[in-house]
Design a protein around this nucleic acid. Structure first.
Lengths: 254, 254
DNA sequence: AAACATCGTGCATAAACGTGCAAAACAAAA
DNA sequence: TTTTGTTTTGCACGTTTATGCACGATGTTT
């Protein structure tokens, strides 16, 4: 996570600070000063300007993400904002150079949008929506899983996609979460969708379940993966988390 | 790293700066001056011009990539009305129940949008954009060709997509047209893109070339298909069509 | 309350900037 | 080849921007 650029343009630095802010939700002045090799005075000046522009909220020691970051376009803008918050938290688990499986789903589309650019990431997905979110952005290698497109799921499924996924080895998998419970694990509705998710998970080192609070109360028909296969759970503070206490899952709250 | 060319034409230099900008997202004036062996003044002049042309954003110390500079999306936005008109004409060649290849490209995205619903159409495409245009609309069976996504083309290319396309038999193919001339036929820029187009065309009974007027004057590097492989040409009334008179192609004007 | 960290402001310095101008390089016409 | 006209370049100049430091003020912790 070293940003040892000998020459970082002032404006570029401000931009990077914003990116970091969006990703982590907060920044510490002293840390930034060390990373960019400038005095804290300069960082403070940057943060002051960003705060004046409404990009962040200045606090003692650093800055926080400004709350008023809601596009508010759709009717379910509420859901989108929640999913964006989850996505921002989820992408903090990604490191430069990693290979990611990103399954179809509206939350996962937000994850794709929130992924940082120019980090040499490889993304394998079955969702044209996810592919579109990454198209034209620098630093992304995108692999599309072929096959028949399922309209309701919003991604490809079937033998071909499964076979293609099996031939890959990835670092992290972001499966779409239909339902998740602490006892059994991850559930899915559709049979073929289930098979593809299992292939993706099996081909990945880690599995990050990103789910809104209600997904932890929901039920579905096919058991996709046991609870011990879940390495991280990214969810909301309002979620019922007591049953997850003994599972050893790393829980990250948006 | 170092570009010690003794002879770098001014125009060429600007081009290289843009390339670097696209690759790194930023350029430093002092570094460029050293690499091109010119004074910083000249570099500053270059950057000023590029910024005026909207290719980059000038900042203290150098320049940053313009935030909204997405090569593909930009092409999408251009001539939308003209492409919609072409698309409306092109879909009149489609009959219910047919199987269609739709290649990547902004014009072809418009074709997908213009296709009639509830006609039991099967669409095979390498473009997530095309898939998205059909997603959720009734009466479409969509097959996505897997593989590595090419950012500039806006679709998948490579051995996998080619193999998948070869295993299909379709009625009509809508290849993306980089250039078309009456003597030789259909041309393409990229080598791998060319191979996929050939596979699509070879797997289809008919081939419909949909091209704006300027595509008939353009040139490209790879010959994809001979002129006799083109069954229909959909283009604009303003196009130079005299040379196509003896080819036996069915010409449809938007 | 004392000790300490962080903050904003003012100031000096250095780097980068735009502008105007004249020399140099280049291309086209004689 | 020489001449003419255009483009490109480097330099000088005054201006703007960014930076680090000093210093007093304001928070935070113990």
């Amino acid at each position: 996570m070293n940003r040892v650029a000998d020459t970082t343009l002032p404006r570029e630095r401000a931009q990077l600070i914003v990116e970091r802010l969006q990703r982590d939700g907060r920044v510490v002045a002293a840390e930034l000063a060390a990373e960019f090799r400038v005095s804290e005075d300069s960082i403070r000046r940057d943060l002051r300007e960003l705060a004046a522009a409404g990009q962040c909220k200045r606090v003692y020691g650093g800055a926080l993400l400004a709350a008023n970051f809601a596009p508010l376009r759709q009717r379910d803008a509420q859901h989108i904002a929640r999913k964006q918050a989850l996505a921002r938290a989820a992408v903090s688990l990604v490191s430069p150079g990693q290979i990611l499986f990103i399954d179809a789903g509206s939350t996962n589309t937000q994850i794709a949008l929130a992924l940082p650019e120019r980090q040499d990431l490889t993304v394998i997905t079955n969702a044209p929506d996810v592919a579109n979110a990454l198209l034209g952005r620098p630093g992304f290698d995108v692999l599309l899983l072929g096959g028949r497109l399922h309209h309701h799921i919003g991604g490809t499924i079937g033998a071909q996609a499964v076979a293609q996924a099996r031939g890959i080895r990835a670092d992290v998998c972001f499966p779409g979460v239909c339902a998740l419970d602490a006892r059994n694990g991850l559930w899915t509705f559709d049979d073929e969708e289930n098979l593809l998710k299992q292939a993706m998970i099996g081909a990945s080192g880690e599995m990050v379940a990103v789910a809104t609070a209600e997904k932890l109360q929901a039920a579905a028909t096919h058991l996709t993966a046991g609870i011990d296969a879940v390495t991280h759970l990214v969810t909301e503070a309002s979620a019922a988390l007591d049953r997850f206490s003994g599972t050893g899952i790393n829980i990250l709250l948006a």
